[in-house]
């Protein structure tokens, strides 16, 4: 006779402790894929999300790159938006209140061309109700100065994090780029400089060309690859980062369903961010949260915390596909 998974009194608790933050579940949305939240309100209850990471904000508004800005690739897309955003003033005045009024935890992704700009932004966001953390963007591949330049050299990464650390008491997440030789070194530098948490990965530097027009498909020539195509890269990076540092890590890269999300948690990531999949299925995060809950039920786990970091590195289970069918996950 089948046992009721609830027989043990398990509540299938999805809440996680992420450094100083308590999240109702580990599912966030990634910066640049969810606007300022309101864009998705027709499709899902925003309060169901662990947190919303808003589109990267700079001190002054940025127009972004000339089009074409994106191109589709197998199981992915390359974008070169160029951090188009409304600037911090308009963000605080006209964008943040929507999420704050609905009590959605907001993480603000911040970006600057200079160290001083990062610091000034952080200072401006200090003490603003509704903001629970800052995510320092040192990993955008699509801008000429700042961005990824800060994220590919450990000492530069440390200087940005230090500058932001001095300017704010908010919890800090540093978002790492995969476009480096040793991501663990950058991770160590960021944590050493005061980053409470890390998120990885940002997009993978990429390119596409058109054989007829004989031109690059992006006006910016290079862009950042995202989507299911990069998930294995993201898993490898997350694993390396978790081995290098001892702080909470948020897994990002190609997550499109609950199985993908659970893979990052299995490695030890304490939360995930869903990005490109939001474009295709605006309610995908709801399905991921529901799928995680179902997984806990089937696996008879009281809470997701029990599952995080439970990877068994020694043994390769030969019947993984059968197990997947049994849990009815995609």
């Amino acid at each position: 006779m089948a046992q009721n998974p609830d027989a043990r009194g398990a509540s299938h608790d999805l809440s996680v402790q992420l450094g100083p933050l308590r999240l109702k579940n580990p599912v966030m949305v990634a910066s640049g894929t969810f606007g300022y939240g309101e864009e998705y309100a027709d499709f899902l209850d925003l309060t169901a999300l662990g947190a919303v990471v808003v589109k990267g904000i700079s001190l002054a508004p940025r127009p972004g790159n000339p089009p074409p800005r994106l191109v589709e690739t197998p199981a992915g897309m390359i974008n070169a938006i160029g951090l188009e955003n409304v600037g911090v003033d308009a963000f605080l005045q006209s964008k943040l209140p929507y999420l704050r009024d609905r009590q959605v935890p907001v993480i603000v992704n911040i970006f600057g061309n200079l160290l001083e700009e990062y610091a000034e932004l952080a200072a401006r966001l200090e003490g603003v109700p509704g903001i629970v953390a800052l995510e320092i963007n040192i990993s955008c591949p699509n801008v000429k100065s700042g961005g990824m330049i800060f994220g590919t050299e450990p000492s530069m990464a440390a200087r940005v994090v230090e500058a932001v650390r001095r300017a704010t008491t908010l919890p800090l997440i540093t978002k790492l780029t995969p476009n480096v030789t040793h991501i663990g070194e950058i991770a160590k530098a960021a944590v050493g400089a005061g980053s409470d948490m890390l998120s990885c990965i940002n997009t993978v530097a990429a390119m596409a060309v058109d054989i007829f027009s004989r031109r690059p498909k992006l006006a910016n020539v290079f862009g950042g690859l995202s989507g299911p195509a990069i998930k294995p890269i993201a898993l490898r990076c997350t694993y390396e980062v978790l081995q290098a540092v001892d702080c909470p890590v948020i897994g990002i890269g190609g997550i499109a369903n609950a199985t993908d999300a659970l893979e990052f948690l299995l490695l030890g990531a304490r939360a995930v961010q869903v990005g490109t999949a939001n474009f295709v299925h605006p309610a995908v995060t709801r399905e991921i949260i529901e799928g995680m809950r179902r997984f806990l039920e089937v696996e008879r786990l009281g809470g997701v915390e029990e599952y995080i970091g439970s990877l068994n590195r020694e043994c390769l289970f030969p019947f993984a596909e059968i197990a997947c069918e049994m849990t009815d996950l995609p």
């Binding site: 640049g32 998705y40 972004g64 000339p66 800005r69 994106l70 974008n79 938006i81 188009e84």
Partner: peptide, 11 residues
């Protein structure tokens, strides 16, 4: 990519 003002690709 999205059609709903999030990706900012259709500039």
């Amino acid at each position: 990519a999205c059609g709903i003002g999030a990706c900012l690709g259709c500039a």
